[in-house]
Design a protein around this nucleic acid. Structure first.
Lengths: 168, 168
DNA sequence: CCATACTTTCAATATATTCTGAAAGAACGG
DNA sequence: CCGTTCTTTCAGAATATATTGAAAGTATGG
């Protein structure tokens, strides 16, 4: 029971890694993000790779991705030549950032393609052709407003949540 | 351009597979689901494995999973000894079913653990201990109502969407 | 019951994803 | 400039995930 902070922090890092996988974020990236989230100071690549036992290459790549997602930013530490990193800590911003990324990369193109298929299947012959069109059109018609809602959430303030909560 | 229905249907099956991956559903399972979604008739395991070029074992396992999720159900076809399968076609039900499954399997346990970590980190010493507690508590406090909202959506009627849409 | 039709299971295999580490590249201080 | 420190890249290795296929298991009609 020597260093309790380190133990509990490690538990958090692991748990965040598990949550991350559910969001399409790999373990290294999620661990790095988690560790930075609960740090009271900026950390360098060496700090992180040592504490999390990751290779230099892996650490470098995933930090870069975190920065490009906007979940982490680089900061300058006076008198240090290395880069230091700090995580965005506002849960709403973290949530919105991840949501935006996934909409952009995965959902948007799929929904668009679905729309094209709905069009292409217009007026196909036979029971089979008609069912194809009917279902694809239905799915597209369902997903389109859902996506629009998600985009509005991404652009909104965090208080939108309590507004939604009220109608539920 | 021989059989247009088959071509377009194949496009849809592939696209649904891609969307499925974004939701933690593997390609075989997503393909089977997609093919059944746009079928005007119940299909047997043999129908499916042949059309989608999947092995028997794979088809069997993934159909069973789809049934256990509640996305597909078995039906009896008169005069046939084989099992036949039919997909739930209402987009709202499909959406809610997948959401429920993921909440249950991935989100709920992670959020619970986060809550326990928030508790365990109460009153830790030092700047580091305090930051750990502060951030974990903040994340948990953010995710908890979000999860509650998701659970309410899962239990609601599809018209809840237009109600939410109104406040966005 | 038996023969046959059908389904499930699971060890082996194939595929996809992630991670490592060393070499190449960049930036900095003097 | 030059030596040093720091960062990135990327081919190969390791790991994780998905798929196959054949054997074992189960149900059905006769």
């Amino acid at each position: 029971m020597e260093n309790k902070v380190q133990d509990i922090r490690a538990r958090f890092v692991d748990e965040w890694g598990a949550l991350g996988s559910a969001w399409g974020i790999n373990r290294s990236m999620a661990s790095l993000h988690a560790r930075l989230l609960v740090s009271s100071e900026p950390m360098s690549m060496d700090d992180l790779m040592e504490e999390l036992s990751l290779s230099r290459g892996n650490t470098s790549t995933n930090l870069r991705d975190l920065v490009s997602w906007g979940l982490v930013r680089q900061v300058v530490v006076r008198g240090e030549r290395k880069q230091f990193f700090v995580a965005e800590k506002d849960p709403w911003k973290v949530f919105v950032t991840i949501l935006r990324e996934r909409l952009h990369r995965e959902i948007d193109p799929a929904v668009d393609t679905l729309g094209r298929i709905a069009q292409a299947s217009e007026g196909l012959p036979g029971k089979e052709g008609q069912e194809l069109h009917r279902v694809v059109k239905g799915l597209h018609g369902f997903l389109l407003p859902l996506r629009a809602m998600a985009h509005r959430v991404v652009g909104a303030e965090s208080k939108i949540l309590s507004a939604i909560s009220r109608v539920l």
